[in-house]
Simulated assay, not measured.
Amino acid sequence: MDFFTAQDNARRKTGRLVILMVLAVLALITVTTLAIAIALHLMENQSATQTNLSAQGMWSALSIELVIGVAIAVLAVVVLGGLFKRSQLKRGGRVVAEALGGREINLNTRDANERRILNVVEEMAIASGTPVPSVYVLEEESINAFAAGYQTNDAVIGITRGTIRHLTRDELQGVVAHEFSHILHGDMRLNMRLISILHGILIIGLLGGTVLRSMRFRRVGGGKRDNSGAVVLALGAVLMLIGYAGTFLAI
Rank of each mutant, 00 (worst) to 15 (best):
Ile36Tyr: 00
Ile36Trp: 00
Ile36His: 01
Ala37Trp: 02
Ala37Gly: 10
Ala37Pro: 03
Leu40Phe: 02
His41Leu: 09
Leu42Tyr: 03
Met43Leu: 08
Met43Arg: 01
Met43Ser: 06
Glu44Met: 10
Asn45Met: 13
Gln46His: 03
Ser47Ala: 11
Ser47Asp: 10
Ala48Lys: 00
Thr51Ile: 15
Thr51Ala: 15
Asn52Lys: 13
Asn52Pro: 07
Asn52Thr: 12
Leu53Asn: 01
Leu53Ser: 01
Leu53Cys: 05
Leu53His: 01
Ser54Leu: 05
Ser54Val: 06
Ser54Ala: 08
Ser54Gln: 07
Ser54Pro: 06
Ala55Cys: 03
Ala55Glu: 04
Gln56Gly: 13
Gly57Thr: 05
Gly57Cys: 07
Met58Phe: 09
Met58Ile: 14
Trp59Ser: 15
Trp59Val: 13
Ser60Thr: 02
Ser60Met: 07
Ala61Gly: 08
Ile64Tyr: 04
Ile64Val: 15
Ile64Leu: 15
Ile64Lys: 04
Glu65His: 06
Leu66Ser: 13
Leu66Arg: 11
Val67Met: 14
Val67Phe: 13
Val67Gln: 08
Val67Asn: 08
Val67Lys: 11
Ile68Ser: 13
Ile68Trp: 10
Gly69Asn: 11
Gly69Ile: 12
Val70Leu: 09
Ala73Arg: 00
Val74Arg: 07
Val74Asn: 05
Val74Pro: 04
Leu75Gly: 07
Ala76Phe: 11
Ala76Cys: 06
Ala76Met: 11
Ala76Ile: 09
Val77Cys: 09
Val79Ile: 15
Val79Phe: 11
Leu80Gly: 09
Leu80Trp: 03
Leu80Lys: 02
Gly81Phe: 10
Leu83Trp: 06
Leu83Tyr: 03
Lys85Gly: 00
Arg86Phe: 07
Arg86Ala: 15
Arg86Cys: 07
Ser87Ala: 12
Gln88Trp: 01
Leu89Gly: 05
Lys90Gln: 14
Arg91Ile: 00
Gly92Tyr: 00
Gly93Arg: 04
Gly93His: 06
Gly93Tyr: 06
Val95Asp: 10
Val95Asn: 07
Val95Thr: 11
Val96Asn: 03
Val96Ile: 14
Val96Gly: 05
Ala97Arg: 04
Ala97Met: 12
Glu98Thr: 12
Ala99His: 05
Ala99Cys: 02
Leu100Gly: 15
Leu100Met: 15
Leu100Lys: 12
Gly101Arg: 13
Gly102Phe: 10
Gly102Lys: 12
Gly102Leu: 14
Gly102Arg: 08
Gly102Ile: 12
Gly102Asn: 12
Glu104Ile: 13
Glu104Arg: 15
Ile105Ala: 07
Ile105Lys: 07
Asn106Gly: 06
Leu107Asp: 10
Leu107Gly: 09
Asn108Glu: 14
Asn108Leu: 10
